[in-house]
Amino acid sequence: MPVILYVLFAVSLLPILLAWAGAAYRIRQLGTLDNRHPRAQQARLTGAGARVQAAQANAWESLGVFTATCVIALAAGVELESLTPAAWLFLVCRLLHPLLYVFNLAWWRSGVYALGMLCCGYIVWRAATLS
């Protein structure tokens, strides 16, 4: 199976892992895990806890973009093995992004996000130039 599909699976797990990290911050900062009203409780987080929640939201958004990118590449008939470097770089960016978010390194985080989106743009460009 092509690496890009393994990356798609790995990236699909990131929002879930970040949700678990967010739950840990909710317990640490607020003393309990309110599973009846989790969104209201998440809104009360501050500092690193709030940034984990924001990173989780961004992970969901990026998952949608990368999924669409993979579908476009598949539909266009791109040789998926040729996309391995871009897929690996996207994965590295997505793994670094929440860490940079938690440690409040905003400019680095934005740069890593942009690089990940450039990977998606490159994959779509490859698909577009096939025809």
Results as ranks from 00 to 15, higher is better:
Pro2Lys: 05
Pro2Cys: 03
Pro2Val: 00
Val3Phe: 13
Val3Lys: 09
Val3Asp: 13
Val3Arg: 14
Ile4Cys: 09
Leu5Cys: 06
Tyr6Val: 09
Tyr6His: 15
Val7Phe: 07
Leu8Asp: 04
Phe9Ile: 15
Ala10Gln: 09
Ala10Val: 05
Val11Asp: 13
Val11Met: 13
Ser12Tyr: 09
Pro15Glu: 13
Ile16Ser: 12
Ile16Asn: 10
Ile16Thr: 15
Ile16His: 13
Ala19Tyr: 08
Ala19Met: 12
Trp20Met: 14
Ala21Lys: 10
Gly22Lys: 07
Ala23Glu: 03
Ala23Ser: 12
Ala23Tyr: 03
Tyr25Asp: 04
Tyr25Arg: 03
Arg28Ala: 14
Arg28Asn: 04
Gln29Pro: 08
Leu33Gly: 10
Leu33Val: 06
Asp34Met: 00
His37Arg: 15
Ala40Thr: 10
Ala40Leu: 14
Ala40Pro: 00
Gln41His: 04
Gln41Ser: 13
Arg44Trp: 01
Gly47Thr: 01
Ala48Trp: 00
Gly49His: 02
Ala50Lys: 11
Arg51Asn: 05
Arg51Phe: 04
Val52Met: 11
Gln53Leu: 07
Ala54His: 08
Ala59Glu: 08
Trp60Thr: 04
Trp60Cys: 05
Trp60Pro: 00
Trp60Val: 11
Glu61Ala: 14
Ser62Lys: 02
Val65Tyr: 08
Val65Gln: 06
Ala68Arg: 02
Thr69Asp: 02
Thr69Gly: 05
Ile72Met: 09
Ala73Cys: 05
Ala73Glu: 08
Ala75Gln: 12
Gly77Val: 04
Leu83Asn: 03
Thr84Val: 11
Thr84Ala: 15
Pro85Cys: 12
Trp88Cys: 12
Phe90Thr: 01
Phe90Pro: 01
Val92Pro: 00
Cys93Val: 11
Arg94Thr: 10
Leu95Arg: 06
Leu99Met: 13
Leu100Pro: 00
Leu100Glu: 00
Leu105Met: 13
Ala106Gly: 05
Trp107Leu: 15
Trp108Ser: 02
Arg109His: 04
Gly111Leu: 06
Gly111Cys: 03
Val112Lys: 00
Val112Leu: 04
Tyr113Pro: 07
Ala114Trp: 06
Leu115Phe: 06
Met117Glu: 04
Ile123Glu: 02
Ile123His: 03
Ala127Asn: 08
Ala128Ser: 14
Thr129His: 12
Leu130Asp: 05
Ser131Gly: 15
